[in-house]
Design a protein around this nucleic acid. Structure first.
Length: 280
DNA sequence: TATGTATGGTAAG
DNA sequence: TTACCCTACATAA
């Protein structure tokens, strides 16, 4: 039997949850919106779509949960989802040759000093309005949206018999939460992931919404996931060591009480919980 | 060089 | 539930 080594928090922090996507939307809008863009697919799998976008003016970039929608003048909407492996490489100042795995490169026609590369996405496609409506219709409220309404989220939790750990990862219940935020929000609210949604108190459900929202906002500001309270860690945000940026995610011992962290597979992914801080 | 792992999601059985 | 897709990087061999 192989020794199972636990992932060290911070060592694999490139895979995106909602905050990464909102941050990317903001940054790319700064660099690209209002300009005619060249679009190319060095890797080749999006050659046709890139050709349809080439030369068009980008008008806006919207983030919904973990999904990105690029709106061009006189062209279909570009839908991007990074999935587990996808990432952006943003170049501002010097633009290197694209890597062979670059699915899509967007760059202003006029300026040769900036470009956005998309690598390894789960989705990179042009969609028509009906498909866009279907996509948005299957997403729950996104706490990062300006007009976010918690009511549908609270109601779904309140009537579901599914484990709350499964519900938090379900993008139709709540958009933007991934495995780290799931683990950390449940821990901060003292809720065990295996409890049924409908068994949570109103205060616990409200705590989850509020906590997830705070963590996502902090993630957008910081550009990384830090969920521990700096006061508790005794240092400023930027000085929290990598190994202490989460309470239970990826850890063997709870950062708060030192007790063992249990691992449960929920919604196909490893959930982390401290049975002492999060009783069943 | 090969293997294992990852913060995601979909579609098929 | 399972298989599968997508990529980069660390570690083992």
């Amino acid at each position: 039997m192989a020794l199972v080594k636990s992932p060290r928090p911070g060592r694999h922090c490139r895979v995106p949850e909602g905050h990464t996507i909102h941050r990317a939307a903001r940054r790319q809008a700064e660099l690209l919106v209002g300009r005619a863009l060249t679009a190319s697919s060095p890797q080749g799998r999006f050659a046709e779509g890139a050709a349809a976008l080439d030369g068009r003016v980008l008008e806006r970039v919207d983030a919904h949960g973990k999904h990105l929608l690029y709106r061009f003048r006189d062209a279909p909407v570009l839908h991007v989802h990074l999935g587990l492996f996808g990432r952006f490489r943003v170049h501002d100042g010097e633009v290197p040759e694209p890597r062979p795995t670059t699915r899509l490169r967007l760059a202003p026609v006029a300026a040769g000093d900036r470009a956005v590369d998309l690598i390894g996405p789960t989705a990179c496609e042009l969609i028509e309005p009906p498909a866009e409506r279907r996509l948005l219709a299957r997403l729950g409220p996104d706490p990062l949206a300006r007009d976010a309404d918690p009511a549908p989220f609270l109601a779904r939790l309140g009537r579901s018999r599914a484990p709350v750990g499964t519900l938090l990862m379900d993008q139709s219940v709540l958009a933007g939460v991934g495995n780290v935020f799931r683990a950390e929000a449940l821990h901060l609210c003292g809720v065990h992931p295996l409890r049924e949604g409908r068994d949570l108190s109103e205060a616990e459900r409200a705590c989850l919404w509020e906590t997830v929202g705070r963590m996502l906002e902090e993630g957008v500001r910081r550009g990384r996931i830090v969920t521990v309270d700096p006061a508790e860690a005794g240092v400023s945000w930027s000085r929290i060591p990598r190994a202490r940026r989460t309470y239970v995610y990826g850890r063997d011992e709870c950062l708060r009480c030192g007790g063992p962290v249990e691992r449960i597979t929920l919604a196909g992914r490893t959930a982390y919980a401290c049975p002492a801080c999060q009783p069943r």
